[in-house]
Design a protein around this nucleic acid. Structure first.
Length: 567
RNA sequence: GAGCCGGUAGCUCAGUCGGCAGAGCAACGGACUUUUAAUCCGUGGGUCGCGGGUUCGACUCCCGCCCGGCUCACCA
């Protein structure tokens, strides 16, 4: 804690101004900005002006270009221009931290568009609208008898102008004495634009809403230390625009998925997270203890078996979007608690789900990104349906020259192959695991574009229905994007006798050393005995979907509070 | 669990061969009523992740530990 800030807080306490209960807000910061600032949407323009300042960014430079009358526009360019020189730059018009900005600007000979006209077109005159806004004071520049600063929250940033002649001598002195960057501040005043064109609140009165007892992270570099960013995510969100963007995106992804499913007639439900049997996936569960029941419970590894019980109960289209828990290692694509949406539709089969998945992904992409194409890890991903479809064994055969019969019947040969391609502990793995590992190692990484891998071997899929044309396969597909599994779907096995047999098969796998073989769920079998309609179901990993959309390569970047060791 | 890399001021980072702990921003004092990475003048600020060892002397070398990142393993 910072002692001078603490002393200021004590002063505020004595004056009963320390932690007020309420502040009347007329507008969100983002709301005001979107009212007076039009999105230029990447329009190509050419502007001319004097370079007032050049700042080095991690990639390229940020240039402040000023018109003869002093109106400014920002440009991001690769070339280092010199302050004081006059340049004509051409680029795509957008907004950078709210300000009009030329992106990927390059010098140009074309006729320039006056900066004033651009500003007039996209930055509207607020006409001294009276507003009352609040946010965190993230910058403060003292000009002697006036102060400039920026208020910020997750919706955006707005400049405030505190002039001694307007707020009065007393209040101005209070501000200088008691307010620091980092504090939460409420302001009343009227909106105008400064000479350089920035939307600004001319403050009539202000109220310190909460003091920050710690100094803010550095304004230019933000917080880079990933450990601090994950453990104190609030600081990451305050300091790093990228973090704010990713988590707003995540929220909108979840919203878009819900919208789509609701619109398609699916019912959102909640099923137990504490379960007596953790089944429905191949994974080790977390164990917890219920004092009253005096028994161990498991945190769910998947909601699947409960959702199918609901289909038995007549809820023909259900979905659940929530956390699952798997007691496994942590790495760039795995967090022990992660978010999945699972949905089930009676009277559908997996072919219906292929089409549905393409529509769902299209909906999410179009409503959030405005396009079906995006860049991930520097490569293009094109989500325009239809996605490519490959047979599971077709892919393996392409890689190994060996057909389905080899993988399913020649255990010795498979073991030797697994050893050859570098599957660890190939000697001890079960047949099912061997196939899975070989596929992982040889095929998975290369599945870049969105594509469906179809028709998995039965022994890898204990809950999927046998393939109608090949009893050794099941009607199952996985959606792969950028080498990662994004979705998993199948025609659901609804024959209780066969389901029981498949569970027993899993028990045998377990006895042979597969710790993650699926657990038997007797009550689920019982539900199936009452009759589950023909049904198809799918799970989509939300975290991984967001990773693709946000173009990040660690799952921790899309989880607000990722799992870390206790510090 | 193994290998590699990292942890230095509130933040971002330098720190040479083992010889007084550095910069920018932030903070503090001063000037400045349209600034915006404001500018100008001045000042203060450190458990160098933790614990041992070697040494006249350790941020620096050695050993152990903690935390994180990446890769691999484990695992969807």
């Amino acid at each position: 804690m910072d002692s001078t800030r603490f002393e200021k807080l004590q002063k505020l306490r004595r004056r009963h101004l320390a932690y007020p209960y309420r502040f009347e807000v007329s507008h969100q910061i983002g709301e005001i900005r979107s009212r007076y600032e039009i999105e230029p949407g990447g329009r190509e323009v050419c502007v001319r002006g004097i370079v007032k300042r050049v700042s080095k960014l991690e990639e390229g430079y940020m240039v402040r270009l000023s018109s003869p009358s002093g109106v400014e526009i920002v440009a991001l360019c690769d070339e280092e221009l010199k302050a004081g020189e006059e340049h004509t730059l051409k680029g795509k018009l957008g907004r950078h931290e709210g300000k009009l900005c030329l992106f990927s600007a390059v010098p140009s000979e074309e006729e320039a568009y006056p900066i004033e006209s651009l500003k007039a077109e996209y930055d509207l005159d607020p006409c001294f609208e009276e507003v009352s806004m609040a946010g965190r004071l993230i910058t403060l520049r003292s000009m002697g008898k006036a102060l400039f600063g920026h208020l910020q929250d997750a919706t955006g940033r707005v400049q405030v102008y505190i002039k001694r002649d307007v707020v009065g001598e007393e209040a101005f002195k209070d501000f200088e004495e008691l307010v620091d960057t980092g504090d939460l501040l409420g302001v009343n005043g009227r909106l105008f634009r400064t000479n350089t064109g920035e939307l600004t609140v001319e403050v009539k009165s202000f109220s310190l809403l909460a003091k920050s007892l710690h100094p803010m992270p550095e304004k230019w570099h933000g917080i880079k230390d990933v450990e601090v960013r994950y453990r104190q995510r609030y600081l990451d969100l305050i300091a790093n625009e990228t973090a704010r963007r990713i988590f707003l995106l995540r929220s909108r992804v979840v919203q878009a998925v819900r919208d789509f499913l609701n619109r398609e007639g699916f019912l959102e439900v909640e099923t137990p997270i504490l379960q007596h049997v953790a089944s429905g996936a191949n994974a080790k569960p977390f164990i917890t203890y219920h004092n009253y029941l005096e028994q161990n419970l498991y945190l769910r590894i998947a909601p699947e078996l409960y959702l199918k019980r609901l289909v038995v109960g007549g809820f023909n289209k259900v979905y659940e979007l929530g956390k699952n828990f798997r007691n496994e290692g942590v790495d760039t694509t795995h967090n022990p608690e992660f978010t999945m949406v699972e949905f089930y539709a009676a009277y559908w089969d997996y072919q219906d789900l292929i089409d549905f998945t393409e529509r769902l992904i299209s909906h999410v992409l179009l409503s959030l990104m405005g396009s079906l194409k995006l860049t991930h890890k520097g490569r293009e991903l094109d989500f325009t349906p239809p996605y490519k479809r490959y047979g599971y064994f077709e892919l393996l055969e392409k890689k190994t020259g060996k057909g389905k019969d080899f993988f399913l019947k020649d255990l010795q040969g498979l073991r030797a192959l697994a050893r050859d391609v570098g599957v660890p502990k190939a000697e001890t793995l079960t047949h099912a695991k061997l196939i899975d590992k070989v596929f992982d190692l040889l095929v998975e990484e290369e599945l870049w574009g969105p594509c469906f891998v179809m028709d998995f071997p039965k022994l890898l899929s204990p809950l999927a229905k046998s393939h109608r044309q090949d009893p050794e396969l099941v009607e199952r597909f996985e959606l792969f994007v950028a080498g990662k599994e994004l979705a998993n779907a199948y025609t659901e096995l609804n024959d209780p006798v066969e389901q029981k047999e498949r569970f027993l098969e899993q028990l045998r796998e377990k006895e042979m050393g597969d710790e993650e073989a699926m657990q038997m769920d007797e009550d689920f079998i019982n539900a199936l005995e009452y009759g589950m309609p023909p049904t198809a179901g799918e799970g989509i990993g939300i975290d991984r979907l967001v990773m693709v959309l946000a173009d990040v390569d660690s799952i921790r970047e899309v989880i607000l509070f990722p799992a870390l060791r206790r510090s």
